[in-house]
Design a protein around this nucleic acid. Structure first.
Length: 346
DNA sequence: AGCTAAGCAACCAGTACGCT
DNA sequence: AGCGTACTGGTTGCTTAGCT
């Protein structure tokens, strides 16, 4: 059946590696469950007749537990069903376990189990992230965690600017960002801007469609203290000269002991992906900001500030830079756990 | 038209371990 | 000691297809 062949080939070709991993996880958990509960069953699951497989699945949805013995989230069980469906489809199983009547029993079992779990208080998205508010950002700035004046703050600042500006662009991945992926340019009228050189920027069709305006941030000349282009320039200076080539990683690890008066604050080594994945979490923990904050929190925050908010931001940044000038005469600071430069609470 | 789910993709946490 | 990576388990995000 050429149709089926094509379909299967298409499926395996198109599938994302994470989808494949999801499928494997579902399969592994189901197999382990079968082995522990029905040791005599040794067949591959795609050769088990539908009636028996339906019974096994029903049993799985009802009795399966996490490694630590606790119940799954309702959505996780549904995901397992989807994963098993993908696997069975790959092996040309004759039925759909999510749709066909022959699997009514397991479908019902899953539904009931989900209801039961929700009654028990599950399914409330315990890991859902909260948005990073404007107030949070102000606190982070005050405490030096978003700042041009120390290595960690500067790295955070540039990361946040990039993520806000380009994070929504398709194909933008912070963890693989190269130095040359973001360019400093100037308009005909002399306004500076940063542009993300996305994978489709060479493509004529894509260009005519989007015009590239999606992937730019412009300098805010009226308030240089909060200008993302100025942040970028500062970061560029603080990187070691050897890391200025296009293919160099954009985000670099911080030198273990930094003299703040030294020009270069960063190593030639890329910042690891685990570190990048916890950017927001780390800065919020260090800034004592309550709530569950993750990188995703950035996407939930509003991208444009009200006039009042941006005025407030400018004031604070000016204030902090003044404050710093009056304290930086020794020029021999060593980075310590906290850069907090203000003790007032507002 | 509005809602739900299906399906894929991605994230977060934990762990183990390697390098300097 | 403090970085880094790789892998795994579990959960959530997001778009779209299907139902009522």
């Amino acid at each position: 059946l050429p149709d089926q062949d094509e379909r299967a080939a298409e499926l395996s070709r198109e599938q994302n590696e994470k989808t494949i991993r999801s499928t494997q996880t579902a399969l592994r958990n189901f197999r382990e469950f079968l082995i522990s509960k029905y040791p005599s069953e040794t067949r591959e699951i795609y050769v088990i007749p539908c009636k028996e497989l339906d019974a096994y699945l029903a049993s799985f949805f009802v009795d399966a537990r996490q490694k630590d013995g606790s119940e799954y989230e309702p959505n996780s069980l549904a995901n397992y069903q989807c994963g098993l469906e993908r696997y069975l489809k790959e092996h040309r199983y004759g039925y759909s376990i999510t749709r066909d009547k022959e699997f009514k029993r397991s479908q019902e079992a899953l539904k009931q189990k989900q209801i039961e779990l929700r009654c028990k208080g599950k399914g409330n998205k315990p890991h859902k992230s909260m948005k990073l508010t404007f107030a949070d950002e102000l606190i982070l700035r005050k405490r030096g965690l978003l700042s041009r004046y120390n290595p960690e703050g500067l790295l955070n600042l540039v990361w946040l600017n990039n993520t806000k500006a380009f994070g929504h662009c398709t194909g933008f991945h912070g963890s693989t960002l190269k130095w040359g992926d973001i360019r400093l340019r100037v308009t005909e009228t002399g306004l500076e801007y940063l542009e993300w050189m996305g994978p489709d920027n060479g493509d004529v069709n894509a260009k005519s469609k989007r015009g590239g305006t999606d992937s730019r941030v412009y300098a805010t000349q009226h308030s240089p203290q909060t200008c993302p282009v100025q942040d970028y320039k500062e970061y560029a200076q603080r990187r070691p000269p050897a890391m200025r080539y296009e293919d160099a990683p954009f985000y670099l690890s911080i030198k273990p002991v930094v003299n703040l008066a030294a020009l270069h604050w960063y190593n030639g080594q890329a910042l690891g992906k685990n570190k990048l994945a916890k950017m927001v979490k780390t800065m919020c923990e260090k800034g004592n900001i309550p709530g569950r904050k993750t990188n995703f929190s950035v996407y939930q925050s509003c991208s444009t500030l009200s006039e009042a908010q941006s005025n407030q931001l400018v004031l604070i940044c000016n204030n902090l830079s003044q404050h710093r000038k009056s304290h930086s005469n020794t020029g021999n600071f060593i980075v310590s756990a906290s850069y907090d430069s203000s003790s007032d609470t507002a």
